[in-house]
């Protein structure tokens, strides 16, 4: 059972990105940009919505773009939940934050990459491509 679940968890959809960002003006423009670049984007506005969504899926996105400061469930809590869920743990996550990332964050939350806000689009695209090619 465990094994089949694990197998299932590795089934990531290529070029499919989950964006978790509460600020709608940022959300909209990122979605627009990524779609232009040929990605399929699902966007949600907090960690709880994202957990609910992932829980209902059988196939998973190839990358999660995660804002850290959000209402209801912030990015750090989401990441901890995700890491504890064996089916979700292997989805790569890129943090997007205006705040400070501490060494402790890096050690315990082990993001695959960090993008600082304000965002430089070229760097952003390059990072996304690394996980979705």
């Amino acid at each position: 059972m465990m094994k089949s679940e694990k197998m299932e968890s590795t089934a990531l959809l290529n070029k499919c990105i989950l964006l978790i960002e509460d600020e709608c003006m940022i959300q909209q423009i990122i979605v627009e940009f990524l779609q232009e670049e040929g990605f399929h984007v699902v966007s949600l506005s907090n960690g709880q919505e994202a957990l609910n969504y992932l829980g209902s899926q059988t196939l998973y996105p190839s990358l999660i773009l995660l804002d850290l400061m959000m209402p209801v469930m912030n990015g750090r809590v989401f990441r901890r939940e995700q890491l504890q869920n064996t089916r979700l743990a292997e989805i790569p996550v890129v943090f997007m934050t205006a705040g400070r990332i501490t060494q402790e964050d890096l050690d315990t939350l082990v993001p695959q990459a960090v993008i600082k806000k304000p965002i430089d689009l070229d760097h952003f695209l390059e990072t996304v491509n690394r996980f979705c090619s």
């Binding site: 003006m25 940022i26 423009i29 990122i30 205006a98 806000k117 304000p118």
Partner: peptide, 13 residues
């Protein structure tokens, strides 16, 4: 930084 980020993204796009 939040509005700045939004600003910057829109301008870059």
């Amino acid at each position: 930084k939040t509005p700045l980020t939004a600003l910057q993204l829109h301008i870059q796009v």
